[in-house]
Design a protein around this nucleic acid. Structure first.
Lengths: 106, 106
DNA sequence: TAGGCATATGAATCTAAAATCATATAGCTT
DNA sequence: AAGCTATATGATTTTAGATTCATATGCCTA
């Protein structure tokens, strides 16, 4: 009975998966091979990670010939990323805390 | 140069931290001791985790005597949790994917 | 149908970061 | 000031889950 929100955030909490998401946000729709090339990671790694993202519909797939084209679930992810941007800037510029991982709040 | 979004999600991607957040969402403001009692976890664990959440202003603190009262940063977190709720229900009921961790989309 | 792409999947290993345990700090009360 | 209470912090151990490498699957073309 792990917390639902935890499972969602956990899904997004790796550098590679967030890179994939940022990429798809910019480029729209890409095959697995194209993603590998763009991110410079090997195929099985990308596939494993796309599997996780698909598992929770953070991305969508479309099959065409023997290619699989992935795209971002924009309805959820666009507003979510925007929320973080807002948080980051209202927090402290481009949120030093998010990059420095230090806290001087009190 | 890790992805900003990754750092944010990573911050929220543990069961304990999400429990703390859910708790603060419901109860408003709590001292560290009260949180420990409510979640049944030991003090240092809670403190470590509160430290991470504070680091990125996901929670706020107020000191009073030798107590520290934590509360949720509602401005960011309330809409974010709502987004996930919406995602979960539009995805598949209370999002089986988020609880089963399996994928049958294609 | 044989061979070659494109992608997925399984299992073993590796690693980031969470939990733990001991200890430090800081303020309150007497 | 001494001792207590509440909380934070450091360092080590532990663990979830990410990466890796080998292999499987599925479709397409000749």
């Amino acid at each position: 009975m792990p917390n639902k929100y935890y499972l969602f955030f956990n899904l997004l909490a790796t550098p590679v998966r967030m890179e994939i998401i940022s990429l798809l946000k910019e480029r729209g729709t890409m095959s697995v091979g194209e993603i590998c090339l763009a991110i410079h990671e090997e195929q099985s790694k990308i596939s494993h990670n796309l599997g996780k993202l698909l598992m929770c519909k953070v991305v969508n797939v479309r099959q065409e010939k023997n290619f699989r084209y992935y795209s971002l679930n924009e309805e959820t992810m666009i507003p979510m990323l925007k929320l973080i941007d807002q948080h980051a800037s209202s927090c402290c510029g481009v949120c030093k805390r998010l990059t420095d991982r230090k806290c001087n709040a009190n």
